[in-house]
Design a protein around this nucleic acid. Sequence first.
DNA 1: TAGATTGTTAATCGATTAACAATC
DNA 2: TAGATTGTTAATCGATTAACAATC
Lengths: 234, 234
Amino acid sequence: MAPTPTANLLQLLAEESDNAAVKDEKAQSKFTIPDIVIGRLPVYLRTLRLLADEGREVTSSQELGEHLGISSAQIRKDLSHFGEFGKQGTGYNISFLCQQLQKILNVDRIWPVILVGAGSLGTAIANYQEFESSGFRIVSVMDEDPQKIGQPIGDGLQIEDFADLKQRLVISNAQIAVMAVPAHAAQRVAGQLIEAGLNSILCYAPITLAVPPRVRVEYIDPVIHFQHMTYYLR
Amino acid sequence: MAPTPTANLLQLLAEESDNAAVKDEKAQSKFTIPDIVIGRLPVYLRTLRLLADEGREVTSSQELGEHLGISSAQIRKDLSHFGEFGKQGTGYNISFLCQQLQKILNVDRIWPVILVGAGSLGTAIANYQEFESSGFRIVSVMDEDPQKIGQPIGDGLQIEDFADLKQRLVISNAQIAVMAVPAHAAQRVAGQLIEAGLNSILCYAPITLAVPPRVRVEYIDPVIHFQHMTYYLR
DNA sequence: TAGATTGTTAATCGATTAACAATC
DNA sequence: TAGATTGTTAATCGATTAACAATC
């Protein structure tokens, strides 16, 4: 067996040496953490911060679970993928666990974000003050409407020409884009963002984007939530 | 065994008569459709409508799956919970399947929705024109800020006093609320909405609400999506 | 020490997928 | 008829939970 590609994984997984003799892909999928677990970490983090704001110093998987409506076992299991963060008998130190989750999620820094679309939704997003404390800063708001280009928006920004995307990206170094554009423009805009090198998109347009596998897209569409709720209504 | 409560289920499940002798709760949980399936139906519907807009008349589970990045088997399985909507060899008639999904999701009508919070996000939501075609109409926008009350908003609405919630609900008959309020106000506002009789809430505030079991809450928080994405970034 | 709570294992539960007979 | 695609079954895969030894 070729030693080199496996060696990398072995470093990452020092304590897993027993099972390390498996094939590379297997190893990947075996030790890779389920995306569904990753998806819950931001919710844990948000809740922990709320507790910290209330002046609390420790909590338990049980308390967190009650807050969130999930089982304490799930919380402990989820965290156990990343290490041991608690103390038997006492629980978790809130600010320590916050720090750890921020590191895991890579939000122990500020990520520059590009916002495309300066309609009323885009404006609301640009105005939202709380991104910064969560690890994100909107560094650029772009639109295609000549009427809008040059107008002030958000906190000291000016609407820029989406045609200048590539130049702006060189300066901002953003890897993340938010799309607040009409559905009919969304696929084209996504294509341009991807072509310019972006690989993470948060899409507010009510459409599933066709993107290459390297690009991650998440969606926000209130209609999907409404229609989910009405299934249970009469 | 008491015949009456079971009888109801038996009607609903005529063809399932073999297994119908189980306990009520069991029967419920056995024949109840998984929430995760319900959650995909609006996405199917959205995609089908897009195809319809392109003038397409039929599609297949394979084509839908490719659009959405899921397996054709999953789509067929999901739909099979509700009936048979396709034709072997040809696939699904798009407009027929749209109609059926709309019925299943109860969006073959217009649901009145109350919007609480007339800040910039609330304003963006109030301005959004596309709810109507998906089954929803914002009938009331409320806020607590005396400066805002009385101002025009959205399509011919006026911002109303949130203190008048109960009277407004009597008129509008809304069962669904959207909360676009600051995090610090969200739990209180939710309590008031629930106390007034609402049972479905779409919450844009970055907080998990404590609500009684009869109330369904869905959340939209861009930060959760951002932090999910940054896990995969360097 | 007694009580509490973790991290982890094994069992359970549920969701997804592959495969195929039925049939358009 | 030949080809395509459904609806459904059974197998697989993965996620959640219950339980408990370890230990603070």
